[in-house]
């Protein structure tokens, strides 16, 4: 019960302090709109159904990785993070509370483009259950990548730089812009090592029926990525933050 009280307080504080701030809300709206407009200007037309999975993936990836990396680095710099490390709650509870806020932020970000798309396209054929599952899994893995960055960064600008170092290669290798089968062999291999590849493929299947792998394969792979990243983050936190 005590752990639950602490978990809920950390989550509530993070949501109020960071995620519900006007710049972050506007980011969630402006980012997908900008990408949609860019795509429209580039091609002169837009197939919303085909474009939506990629847009949702990007919204999650950009929202979660930067938010968690920046907020944790910011709290560590101001030493308020020390207060969490010194609280009598397990490191797992604390980490879960910190990532839950970012995961929820990612989920919300993903559904903004979906909500806008509902006005311009027929989304009745979409398998929303699978979409929700995929969105959750992409959010969790992207958030954990953000945490991995936060553990390595000492300054906020470092966290932002590291985030981009991960994000942009992932965007170009996960099949959003270039189909995976058209990538050179080495990059194709690399793309299968990225969680976003599997998440985007599930979304492609659930929204546009253009997946290249079965969802029943992608879901366990994403779950495995989530567990693997959590263990790595937990290990690094123990090694780097408790000196």
């Amino acid at each position: 019960m005590k752990s639950w009280i602490a978990f809920w307080s950390i989550l509530k504080k993070d949501i109020q302090n960071y995620y519900l701030k006007p710049p972050n809300i506007s980011w969630g709206i402006i980012f997908p709109l900008s990408w949609t407009l860019m795509q429209f200007i580039r091609s002169g037309s837009l197939n919303i159904i085909e474009f939506l999975p990629g847009l949702m993936s990007m919204s999650i990836l950009f929202g979660t990785t930067s938010m968690l990396a920046v907020t944790i680095t910011f709290e560590r710099k101001g030493r308020s993070f020390e207060r969490l490390l010194l609280a009598p709650i397990s490191l797992n509870t604390m980490v879960l509370a910190k990532i839950t806020g970012a995961v929820l932020f990612g989920i919300l970000n993903a559904f903004i483009p979906a909500a806008v798309a509902a006005f311009f396209a027929d989304l009745t054929g979409v398998n929303w259950g699978v979409v929700l599952l995929a969105v959750c899994l992409i959010s969790i893995t992207s958030t954990l990548l953000g945490l991995l960055i936060a553990v390595s960064a000492k300054e906020v600008f470092e966290a932002q730089t590291f985030s981009n170092f991960f994000r942009f290669p992932m965007l170009f290798l996960c099949g959003l812009f270039i189909p995976i089968h058209e990538l050179p062999a080495f990059f194709r291999l690399l793309s299968y090592c990225l969680p976003l590849t599997y998440g985007t493929d599930i979304l492609n299947g659930a929204i546009a029926q253009t997946n290249t792998m079965p969802s029943l394969l992608c879901i366990p792979v994403l779950l495995a990525f989530a567990v693997f990243l959590f263990v790595i983050c937990r290990y690094n936190i123990n090694r780097k933050w408790i000196l």
Partner: peptide, 15 residues
């Protein structure tokens, strides 16, 4: 956070 919220938050960390 304001002073009251800060104190409540710290107390919640101890359950």
């Amino acid at each position: 956070l304001d002073g009251f919220e800060n104190l409540c938050f710290c107390a919640s960390l101890y359950g």
